[in-house]
Design a protein around this nucleic acid. Structure first.
Lengths: 116, 116
DNA sequence: GTGTTACTTAAGCGAATGCTTAACCAACAA
DNA sequence: TTGTTGGTTAAGCATTCGCTTAAGTAACAC
């Protein structure tokens, strides 16, 4: 298993490309085949497959081949980990701003010392 | 102003590097100077500055130079937009799974037709 | 069988990334 | 004024990325 850091690397990297995000958007509405995913994109099929490999390596999607079509589905567990990472940093920062606001509100010194 | 797509590109791209995420983690606890951010990282100062440029271009941080030190702070608005994008896709997918579950539960045919 | 469809594999190429070192500059300190 | 600190700029370089075309292969349709 990959460590947490490397796994976030792959996920954010995967989400950094607009074509790949478009695939994720499509997959958020339900499973799709490779050529369905390729249809709205202006690039060759091998290029699409390469994007899919990036998404799969990142854990954001899973794929399964049935007959000659490969079916792709979103893995929301991975999405959730990425969302969680961002959320935690944001929460930390906002809690800090809250503390700062409280301090300033309670402070008797109108000029305020920076409590950081 | 950048369009939504390009802006997400830059944000996710910025978050895809572990050194940059480390800087964001540090900044989530309060503002810091360039050399404070550089201290835990095993690379030259110019390299750190280049990472900061990526973060600033993505909108994730803002910086201001006072005297000879540059102070960096997190911009949670940008973080929130990235979090929101992920959250929406995930929510869509999970709502779909719920509908599917309901359908299967209500179905009179024990084998179930796939309603997708 | 003979197609046609749905990918897959391989090789190559230009551009972008993540670093480096060397040299520079501007603020403050003695 | 002479250093030292905190960054900045510029150039170069190896690697990775996003694409291409060309040539497979394996499943299904007739």
């Amino acid at each position: 298993m990959l460590n947490q850091q490397a796994s976030l690397d792959l996920m954010f990297q995967a989400l950094a490309d607009p074509s790949r995000r478009m695939m994720v958007e499509r997959l958020s509405q339900g499973p799709a085949s490779v050529s369905e995913l390729a249809k709205p994109l202006d690039m060759s099929l091998p290029a699409v497959v390469q994007h899919l490999q990036v998404l799969e390596a990142s854990g954001l999607i899973r794929t399964e081949k049935v007959g000659r079509v490969r079916s792709c589905t979103l893995d929301t567990g991975a999405l959730q980990r990425a969302e969680q990472w961002i959320h935690e940093r944001r929460a930390l920062w906002e809690r800090r701003l809250d503390r700062l606001g409280e301090y300033l509100a309670l402070s008797e010194d109108p000029k305020g010392h920076d409590p950081t």
